[in-house]
Design a protein around this nucleic acid. Structure first.
Lengths: 208, 208
DNA sequence: CTTAAAAATTAAGATAGTTTAAGAGTCTAT
DNA sequence: ATAGACTCTTAAACTATCTTAATTTTTAAG
């Protein structure tokens, strides 16, 4: 198999965590485009694997946002802290999700968001330069990211609709139904900050 | 000039509204990719120009969403009506914007949104089939739509952040600053339904 | 195992937003 | 030009959500 050939540090015959993570990254990309061995090698080269620990910050609000992340396993949260200290969670990324402060990544601006690792996780990072060059080296990436952003746009638009049209209770119930795996991993405080309400209020909603 | 050659119905030498609209469509696409004469001819063929009137519905909630629209001039609103009759405006599209119920267009499902023409407008429509075939015929469209969806995603994500973190008053002020041309064209009731509050409450906010 | 820190719950009083209703102003179709 | 329909404003009563603060429960570190 391809991985067995290119992976150098794997002295025994077991499949390492690194390998598993890489397989997940490539499988994710191959959901939308076809990759040959050369493409995979290229991606293996430009995506940097990292094992990260709970509470680690992949990005700190105010710093230049240089990386796009793929969460192979574990979970990451993107949130903004306003001037008066209020936290708002923009998204949770669990296995198989992509995450960064996309606006600031694409425009190489100071991040509006922090990225916090919620549990020990395996992630890949892609630099801004590699992201831009990738489209020349591997033109099918245009298609891959077209579909990725297409889905992301549709998801956010639906979230906007729910946010402006439903009650907090309805939104909470929808969240639990839609993302049960996330509910298991994150605190209620974080869910409240995702819904845009106080933890106290979310608590009273749950009681009902 | 290219347009003068391919445009057939233009018997005098003036630039028709149709021509102007086509120029806007092509200019919009050329913001992100390079088109040669053949590409333009292709696009001219697959994009259908329509002059539409105020109050016309380009799409009715519940019907299959078959088209993607480009607003060359005028304005269009996308909104959802909930079971209990409450309207929520998802977006306004003015000159140079693309609009449809993207989720239902991409998945060929029954529309969650209606598209209402707010003033006499010039639009182009692209069918779902043409959208999908377009990527084969003109592969650069992957790039064009990648960037279009990238921007759309970032915009929606920022709207989510504002919606969950700011007060209604702050969101109204931001809207007026960000989209002054829209404010001139739409009713206050429609802005209220975009912000997710009642027209009465928006009215009291403005008083301050 | 213990203890400190963080999360979750509860409740009272304050603020933001809705509902209903009525009146004044605008637009639009005969 | 006028009637009807729609928009905008105002206000009072009501509901949702926030703030503060105290109490309990859970989590994490030594």
């Amino acid at each position: 198999m391809y991985l067995a050939v290119t992976k150098q540090n794997n002295l025994d015959n077991t499949v390492s965590t690194d390998d598993e993570s890489l397989i997940r990254l490539l499988a994710n990309i191959q959901k939308h485009i076809v990759l040959d061995a050369k493409d995979m090698e290229y991606l293996h080269r430009v995506f940097k694997h990292r094992t990260v620990q709970k509470k680690e910050l992949l990005l700190l609000q105010g710093r230049l946002c240089r990386k796009l992340f793929f969460v192979a396993s574990g979970s990451v949260r993107a949130f903004n802290v306003s001037d008066d200290g209020k936290e708002s969670t923009i998204m949770f990324a669990i296995d198989d999700w992509w995450i960064t402060d996309m606006y600031c990544f694409l425009n190489q601006k100071k991040a509006l968001l922090s990225l916090e690792v919620l549990e020990d996780s395996e992630v890949f990072e892609l630099s801004y330069e590699a992201f831009q060059k990738g489209f020349e080296k591997l033109p099918q990436l245009e298609r891959f990211f077209r579909i990725l952003f297409q889905n992301a746009y549709v998801r956010e638009q639906l979230r906007v609709l729910e946010t402006i049209s439903l009650t907090t209770e309805e939104r909470y119930r929808n969240f639990v139904i839609k993302y049960p795996q996330i509910v298991e991993k994150v605190t209620q405080k974080q869910i409240a900050s995702y819904l845009g309400v106080t933890p106290e209020f979310l608590s009273t909603i749950k009681k009902k």
